[in-house]
Amino acid sequence: MFKIVSKRQLNEAVTLMDIEAPYIAKKARAGQFIIFRIDEYGERIPLTIADTDPEKGTVTIIFQAVGTSTIALAKKNEGDYISDFVGPLGNATEIEGYKNVCVVGGGVGCAIAYPSAKALHNAGAHVDMIAGFRNKDIVILEDEMRAVSDNLYVTTDDGSYGEKGFVTNKLQSLIDAGNKYDLVIAIGPIPMMKFLAEVTRPYGIKTLVSLNPIMIDGTGMCGGCRVTVGGKIRFACVDGPDFDGHEVDFDELMRRNAYYKAQERESASHPCRMLASADEAVKEDK
């Protein structure tokens, strides 16, 4: 059993939790993920690690309550336990050797973009961050992101906070303004990552995306998380979760992630996670 040490609501749908998991806290690097299971009847759900405190032995996760398991998790409180928490899985984001990086987060994807930005910042890179949200009410982690970036640009679709517009537009304008990035990291809804990769493609800027497909074990055993990258089948859990955004077949990934949406709608009447994030992204990128 794993204890929820603290809990904080970041916006109406997004929750931050520190989970007591000393071995994972000691080992985890930016970009890696955990799999949790709420109880005996729950699914195994992957979540990227947002932060760790090796001294306290805690691992921070940030998640949007949109599927059966994340809704149940959001209802848990400080001092409660969940049955399973395993990691750190996957490969860490490569941060060595980059000097000028732009890290882009979309919505709750900022929770995953943040640790990558922090790791790059700590490694001495110049870090620009673009954080995109639908509106002012759902902005998260602004102070944290500001602390680990040289410039933080917040955008909202409706202009209710920061600059009005989409993260793709902002990245384009930063490139147009003469910024020479040697790496762009894009983390958010699949359509957002897809369109961001199209922004950087003409300039040949290396673009990493972090993929979060459906998976069970997270150790290469089920093959459920397979994605097509550069025409080859790769397993996101052991070969990723970061991949070259210019090579990923995003359309296939989107279809595969929608695999169980009908069943999930049946099992509980709640808005589907993938649909919600896809809708959000389409709004961001149309």
Binding site: E43, R44, I216, D217, M221, C222, G223, G224, R226, V227, T228, I233, D249, E252, R255, R256, Y259
Partner: peptide, 19 residues
């Protein structure tokens, strides 16, 4: 092989037996 509805036996059996 990446179409929806293609499983490895491992995934299919794990979903049913373990999960």
């Amino acid at each position: 092989e990446s179409l929806i509805g293609v499983y490895s036996a491992n995934e299919y059996l794990t979903r049913v037996n373990l999960m």
